[in-house]
């Protein structure tokens, strides 16, 4: 697999995300089909949101992309920046290629629960991925401090997770996900448990971080508004087993006021229509 990232985490090219192509991926877990023929495509540095019902396979699809699960059928191919026409050479069998990428830490996850280690302070939580990658103590702390400074979290570096609010915990979890300078950031309902005001603030912060780092982002969310306001394209997953519907391109000016803009509302409406299709229509509209 031709991938610009190899060797230590710090060598990862800051500017340039991974392109992700999911082709005809199905997943069967314990004899139950969870995902059927899912397709999606994100360009390097792009931002894609997956929305859909609970239990519709969104999280499973994200875990397949992240290499935590292996697809039963189909393939997931990654391309590095500038390799968009080199699809053939970048193609591997799905599970192998996902594993290979995950091992270079160029993929990061951010989960709804934050998953901070409660016995470690903020700084050591953020430094954890580097620590587990064998980065020396002073180097990983410097990198973690830099990330915390970027997110205006420096004042909290000695706090324990139990001392933080839900929103702060998620910001620390985001800092940890980004400290490895990932080329692909997978976000599983990261702000699902937060209040609306905090959520809006963190959405904006996430958008800014995505722009700054140039990473590719795939966000799984229940919120249509969140999906439309952050992503460049939205994919709806419907039915059981979950199928991906035709992707909806979002070409909105991403300024602070865009959530009240008419175009935003009509895009939300389109996503909503796909989400409320009757099941027989799902099969027809599915890619």
């Amino acid at each position: 697999m031709r991938n610009a990232s190899h060797g230590t985490v710090r060598n990862v090219n800051l500017h340039g995300g991974l392109g992700v192509h999911v082709r005809g991926v199905s997943h069967i877990f314990d004899g139950l089909q969870v995902i059927q023929q899912a397709d999606l495509q994100v360009e390097p540095g792009g931002f894609l949101a997956i929305v859909g019902d609970s239990g519709g396979g969104k999280t499973t699809l994200l875990r397949l992309i992240g290499g935590l699960l292996a697809p039963t059928r189909g393939e997931i191919v990654f391309t590095a920046s500038g390799e968009m026409n080199a699809g053939e050479s970048a193609r591997g069998t799905s599970s192998q290629s996902t594993q290979a990428v995950a091992q270079t830490s160029s993929i990061s996850f951010c989960f709804q629960e934050g998953r901070l280690l409660p016995w470690r302070n903020v700084l050591d939580n953020v430094a954890l991925p580097l620590e587990l990658n064998g980065v020396l103590a002073h180097e990983r702390r410097a990198a973690a401090r830099e990330m915390l400074a970027k997110m205006q979290l420096s004042d909290s570096e000695n706090k324990m997770p139990a001392q933080l609010s839900g929103g702060m915990r998620m910001r620390v979890a985001m800092a940890r996900a980004l400290v490895t300078r990932p080329k692909l950031l997978l976000l599983d309902e990261p702000f699902g448990a937060l209040d609306e005001v905090t959520r809006l603030a963190l959405d904006e912060e996430l958008r800014q971080l995505w722009l700054d780092t140039g990473t590719t982002a795939i966000l799984v969310t229940h919120s249509i508004q969140e999906a439309v306001s952050l992503a460049q394209q939205v994919v709806v997953m419907r039915g059981k087993p979950g199928r991906t519907m035709q992707s909806i391109a979002i070409d909105l000016p991403k300024d602070a006021a865009h959530r009240t803009n008419m175009q935003f509302v009509s895009l939300c409406e389109r996503v909503y229509q796909q989400m409320t299709l009757q099941s027989k229509e799902v099969a027809r509209v599915a890619q």
Binding site: G66, L68, A102, Q103, S105, F109, F111, E113, R115, L117, L128, P129, L132, N133
Partner: peptide, 16 residues
């Protein structure tokens, strides 16, 4: 288990 998975994502070995 969620934290175990986190360590799996970071490729931590058994001892770590």
């Amino acid at each position: 288990p969620a934290l175990r998975e986190l360590f799996r994502i970071y490729n931590a070995n058994r001892f770590t």
